[in-house]
């Protein structure tokens, strides 16, 4: 193996990283499909259950509205739209990014990260590209169905769709960043299977109307950790009740993602292994 191939030549890495990322990502999808084909029943069940869960997730809202109560200022279908968008964002993260938490954790626990570190591409790109989860597609489908049904029952401002996509992307970035930070934490907090619980507990701030929270907390979930961009704000945009000052949240969302990438690359230095 020559030095250039091993990635010691930084220029070589820079030149080939993006090309390599695309190819490795496709290979990751291929491996995920083959794995799904090998364990077909489990694959179908996992997708089915994710689908059921995505549809059942707004159960609290259904029961609240069924009891005659409501979130002030929100109709039933408006809340469903918000929660459908949230489920969509959450499922996108589960399909494309979230598995990095488990794969990093397993590599650290088993001491096998060397097999990743030796590859001629940045470890974080390799880990993301091989984290594709085909068996989380059920949640994606469930979130999409819920969003479409809810949108059909609300007065949507179609002209706001580009802004909605932008804010939705910011929400996806926040959730992805939180996954990367959870994964990075596993370099120090070895084999803690509950790291994801911490991330998911913060997600709760994105699934309900942000106005139910006091102003300090509202500010925090808008401009510090903009979880409100996962469900609440995209829905507000589509419903034409968005406060446009909140567009600024894309700045902390981008910064949070950049910090998460830096943090992962920093924490990877703490890894200790003896050859995999």
């Amino acid at each position: 193996m020559n030095a250039e191939y091993r990635g010691e030549n930084t220029e070589y890495r820079k030149k080939h990283t993006h090309h390599g990322f695309g190819r490795v990502y496709l290979a990751g999808i291929g491996a995920s499909m083959k794995s799904a084909a090998a364990y077909r029943v489990n694959f179908l069940l996992m997708n089915l259950f994710d689908l059921v869960w995505a549809v059942a997730a707004p159960l609290v809202t259904i029961l609240i509205y069924g009891s005659g109560a409501s979130f002030p200022g929100w109709t039933f279908w408006e809340v469903m739209l918000m929660q459908g968008l949230f489920e969509l964002s959450s499922a996108l993260c589960a399909v494309f990014v979230e598995n990095i938490v488990w794969s990093t954790m397993n590599h650290v626990r088993e001491g096998s990260l060397e097999t990743v570190l030796l590859k001629p591409m940045p470890p974080i790109l390799y880990m993301v590209s091989t984290s594709f989860r085909l068996d989380s597609f059920g949640g994606l489908l469930g979130g999409l169905v819920l969003t479409l049904i809810a949108a059909g029952n609300c007065e949507i401002m179609a002209i706001s769709l580009p802004l909605c996509i932008l804010i939705f992307a910011a929400g996806f970035a926040v959730n992805s960043a939180a996954s990367l930070i959870s994964a990075a934490a596993s370099f120090k907090w070895v084999a803690n299977s509950r790291l994801s619980e911490i991330r998911m507990s913060f997600e709760n701030f994105g699934i309900y109307p942000v106005k139910i929270f006091p102003s300090a907390l509202r500010f925090a979930v808008t401009f510090i950790l903009p979880y409100a961009a996962m469900g609440c704000f995209p829905a507000e945009i589509l419903l034409g009740r968005f406060d446009y000052i909140n567009i600024l949240l894309i700045i902390p969302a981008a910064l949070f993602l950049m910090f998460a990438i830096w943090f992962y690359n920093h924490m990877i230095r703490l890894y200790e292994g003896v050859g995999g």
Binding site: V60, S70, F71, S201, N204, P209, I212
Partner: peptide, 20 residues
């Protein structure tokens, strides 16, 4: 995680109980 969960529940239900 426990206090965050309870905090969210507190605000959800405080908002919902506004009219009932």
């Amino acid at each position: 995680v426990g206090p965050i969960f309870l905090l969210v529940q507190y605000f959800i239900w405080t908002a919902v109980y506004g009219g009932v």
